[in-house]
């Protein structure tokens, strides 16, 4: 159908990506067909799908960074987050849906890192969608056995007297690592601190930026 769709926006209001211009694949055909059937059968509406994509696009590691920065600056919140991670983040205003969250604070002698060896469980309602490497065979296989070697591939070298604790996200809980607050940030406000919190520092494969 030779009409020009390049100037149009997708139903979610975003510009089309270049994948729209490559040859249609079998699975793309299936996605279109499944989506249309679900709408025709009255199970979903096009508007629901659009707003779900918008909600997903709005989630990013910036949300998690605010949680971490607040943990650093607000002792009451820190206590609430450890007691019930889901409720505390919900109370901060994040729409985390049914996600059950456990916060894992690092200490000077403990470094936490999260993996899902069985599939790709990730705190997506707080951090957005997982990076490709998190879903890779290499990361899923090796992290539970040789976490220090995996961390060093991310540029994180830990001294032997720091315990590495690997969390295999096998069932219903999702995990966010609370990295150690960087030195030299005394008196900083939450928003300033959040700028230092990287996505990988909340997975455990990175550290916060230096102040």
């Amino acid at each position: 159908m030779p009409h020009d769709h390049h100037d149009h926006l997708s139903p979610s209001g975003h510009p089309y990506r270049k994948d729209d211009d490559v040859e249609l694949t079998y699975w793309q055909t299936m996605e279109i067909a499944v989506r249309e059937l679900l709408i025709e059968k009255g199970e979903l509406t096009a508007a629901q799908i659009t707003s779900q994509i918008d909600a997903m696009d709005a989630r990013s590691p910036a949300n998690g960074a605010q949680v971490v920065a607040r943990y650093w600056t607000d002792p009451d919140f820190a206590e609430a987050l450890l007691a019930d991670g889901s409720q505390a983040t919900r109370d901060m205003g994040y729409d985390i849906g049914p996600m059950k969250l456990i916060a894992l604070p690092n200490t000077p002698t403990l470094h936490n890192v999260v993996v899902c060896t069985l599939c790709s469980c990730y705190p997506r309602n707080l951090l957005g969608l997982p990076p490709d490497w998190y879903k890779s065979r290499a990361y899923r296989s090796r992290t539970v056995r040789e976490p220090r070697r995996v961390l060093s591939e991310f540029g994180v070298e830990l001294s032997p007297d720091i315990e590495v604790r690997v969390h295999d996200s096998t069932a219903d809980m999702r995990y966010i690592v609370i990295p150690n607050r960087p030195d030299g940030t005394e008196g900083w406000m939450q928003d300033q601190l959040a700028e230092l919190v990287t996505r990988d520092s909340m997975i455990g494969t990175g550290l916060p930026k230096h102040s």
């Binding site: 220090r148 590495v164 604790r165 295999d168 996200s169 219903d172």
Partner: peptide, 9 residues
Amino acid sequence: NPSDTIEAE
């Protein structure tokens, strides 16, 4: 490092 730990549900 044998003294590191793993947690799983």
